[in-house]
Amino acid sequence: MKKFIIAVILTIVSFHITQAQRMLSGQKGLEIGGGLLSKSIKRDYFYNITLSVHTKGGSYWIWRAEYNHQFSDYRGLQIPLETYTGEIGYSIKLLSNPRKNLALNGGLTAVAGYEMINKGDSLLFDGAKILSQDNFIYGAGFDLSLETYISDRIVFLLHGRSKLIWGTDLKLFRPSAGIGLRFNF
């Protein structure tokens, strides 16, 4: 019985002492996320999918595809504004605790994509014409994320992001906030 108790205690202690190796160079992750573009939950939102590849020191490369959906009001009509973007960038670990289960990262990305206004239809119900056009867009993005490991392979993220977009007839500065789950493999 003593041997069994000692074995159980050693097993528990070894699980507590052993730490997973996180943020290893070459480790890949697939992130699924979403969030808000404004205070309106039902109207203005985004979804994204991100591939990340860790480098030395907890930093990582980012490849992201994103869909944004928002509405603009016109005489009681909701005009849909949709944006499809791709981003490539690099995120640097700013802060982390010694066990690497909580980290604050900041990243810069290059953004390119396409925006559609009213699904490409320039005429409205009352005969008014939308002067803004569908456009190819480009720009830069900044991402600040708080990341915490739920398990060795699952990471929960809180994002605060902003984009500067050129080639658009809409807003130049586009902030957003969201959450995500990353699955490391």
Rank of each mutant, 00 (worst) to 15 (best):
K3S: 00
H159K: 14
Q27P: 01
G57P: 00
I9A: 03
A20C: 05
G180H: 04
W63R: 04
D73N: 13
H54W: 07
D169F: 06
I130N: 07
Q78W: 04
T109F: 02
P98V: 06
N68Y: 08
T85H: 05
K56V: 04
L30P: 01
K56A: 09
K42S: 15
V155G: 08
A20K: 06
L108E: 02
G107K: 05
I79Q: 08
V111R: 10
L94A: 13
E31D: 01
L37G: 13
K100D: 12
Y138S: 14
A128V: 11
I6A: 00
S122A: 11
E82L: 09
T50D: 02
K56H: 07
G127S: 04
G180C: 03
N184H: 10
L170K: 06
P175S: 07
L77C: 01
E115C: 03
S91H: 02
V111P: 10
I62T: 12
S132Q: 14
K171A: 15
V8T: 00
F173P: 05
L124V: 07
A128H: 13
N97A: 01
S96M: 02
S40P: 02
S52Y: 01
I9F: 00
S91Q: 09
Y67I: 05
I12N: 05
A112D: 04
S14E: 02
S38P: 07
I150E: 01
N184G: 00
K28L: 06
S145G: 01
G89V: 03
E31T: 14
I62R: 11
S162M: 09
V111W: 08
S52P: 00
D73L: 12
I79T: 04
F142I: 14
S14W: 08
S145V: 01
R75D: 14
I41C: 02
L123T: 12
M1E: 01
E66S: 09
E147P: 00
K119H: 14
R161F: 01
F4W: 00
Q133D: 10
G58T: 06
K42Y: 12
S145R: 13
L24Y: 03
Y149R: 06
N97I: 12
F173W: 15
S151P: 03
P175Y: 04
S40N: 15
G113V: 09
Q133M: 01
F142S: 12
H54G: 02
I165V: 15
T11V: 03
L104A: 08
R43T: 13
I6H: 00
G120N: 07
R22A: 09
K171I: 02
N97K: 04
Q78Y: 10
N118Y: 03
K171H: 11
T18I: 11
V155Q: 15
I41Y: 11
G139Y: 11
Y84G: 04
L10C: 10
Q70M: 14
L144A: 14
I92V: 14
N97L: 02
F185Y: 08
K93V: 07
T109H: 03
L37T: 03
D121M: 04
I150V: 11
G160F: 10
Y45R: 13
K28M: 10
L51E: 07
Y74K: 03
T168G: 06
R99F: 05
S59L: 01
I6Y: 00
H159D: 12
D169K: 03
A103I: 04
I137S: 10
V8A: 00
G178K: 05
Q27M: 09
G76C: 08
I165C: 13
I165M: 11
G160D: 03
H159F: 13
A128D: 15
L131F: 13
Q70E: 15
